[in-house]
């Protein structure tokens, strides 16, 4: 069992590293694919494993993006002057400045988003079910609008990010690598977390939070840690995405509630929420289908997306992994009826 799983990871690692060399023309799409995988997986930490369905994780994405932008610029220039004077003067970043700024920017984005999730958690985690989903949606929507009012970071017209100092091909490879790395780290971290007491605790919160409280599980603490992990990765990937796109603005790039914000939920549901691999499978499938059919739908793609989402939720709630687990429970170590004597470590 362990050997097979090790092989699988090796295969993914090999494919992930080799893909950009074989298909350099799709490198942007593939980087986006890893972003999708990360978003769906970290959404599932709360939505699937803990039963707290956030519609506003994109808040951390956008805030991370802006935090990194401010850090990257503020280390060397006055941000207000940079954003307002951009176009007239062209600030230069040396190689060292750029990469140090980027590194610190991504870290600051992750920890800043984490801090934000901690503060929001005090308000949001006193709420159950629909209030949580709608409250987070409201926060994400409001965050995009509020960001547009802050002139310091360029207001509604946005900021151009510092230029990548090397060749365009290297730039694409570099950001592809960053996305792949972050998605892989997130996946492995989640994998480990789900195998610990923490994983059980958040499952317990999902199944019956009142019982978990009555059994003394400090639910607020677990919920906040869970959201902080999600927020950290969303913040980091937001910073990376901002630099990858090269230009950030509040509504379409930083806080895309109706695109990325809903994609991550749709992908996790499609693959099967509450499983480690479901969101990954869902993200790959969703992204590939979307990218290959998008241009043929001639403007109807968004309608098709809404329709798919509805059909997915209404008629195929369990998702691919849920369906597989129901069909082949033994493969997943789920015991039905009388238990065989072996103790399987499969989560």
């Amino acid at each position: 069992m362990l050997g097979r799983r090790f092989l699988l990871y090796l295969l993914i690692l090999g494919a992930g590293l080799a893909a950009p060399w074989f298909y350099p023309q799709y490198i942007q799409q593939m980087a986006l694919l890893w972003i999708m995988v990360l978003m769906a997986s970290t959404w599932d930490l709360l939505g699937g494993q803990m039963g707290y369905n956030s519609l506003g994780n994109i808040t951390f994405f956008g805030c991370g993006m802006y935090i990194s932008a401010v850090v990257q610029i503020a280390m060397f220039y006055d941000v207000a002057a940079y954003t307002s004077a951009f176009g007239a003067i062209k600030p230069e970043f040396t190689d060292e400045q750029y990469f140090m700024g980027l590194f610190l920017g991504i870290l600051a984005a992750g920890f800043g988003a984490m801090l934000l999730s901690y503060l929001l958690g005090f308000i949001m985690f006193g709420l159950r079910g629909p209030y949580f989903a709608i409250g987070t949606l409201g926060i994400a929507t409001a965050a995009g609008q509020l960001m547009g009012t802050i002139d310091y970071v360029g207001g509604g017209s946005g900021i151009s990010m510092p230029f990548f100092p090397w060749a365009v091909e290297i730039r694409a490879l570099f950001f592809y690598g960053l996305c792949f790395f972050l998605a892989a780290v997130a996946h492995l971290l989640l994998r480990w977390i789900y195998s610990t007491q923490f994983g059980l605790a958040i499952n317990a919160i999902r199944d019956d939070e009142d019982k978990a409280e009555a059994m003394g599980i400090p639910t607020l603490k677990y919920k906040q840690i869970g959201w902080a992990i999600t927020a950290f990765f969303m913040g980091c990937i937001g910073a990376v995405f901002g630099n990858m796109v090269g230009f950030i603005e509040p509504v379409e790039v930083a806080f895309p509630v109706a695109t990325f914000g809903i994609f991550m939920v749709a992908m996790a549901l499609l693959g099967g929420k509450g499983t480690l691999w479901g969101p990954v499978i869902g993200a790959v499938l969703f992204h590939v289908i979307k990218e290959t059919t998008w241009t043929y739908l001639l403007g109807w793609q968004w309608v098709a997306l809404g329709l798919i989402l509805i059909i997915n939720i209404v008629y195929f709630q369990e998702g691919i992994m849920g369906w597989l687990q129901r069909k082949f429970p033994e493969f997943f170590g789920i015991t039905i009826d009388h238990a065989p004597p072996d103790k399987d470590a499969e989560q």
């Binding site: 369905n53 989903a133 939720i313």
Partner: peptide, 11 residues
């Protein structure tokens, strides 16, 4: 909630 959110996108 999510189904109606999908409906919202569709509309």
């Amino acid at each position: 909630l999510l189904a109606t959110f999908g409906l919202s996108l569709l509309l």
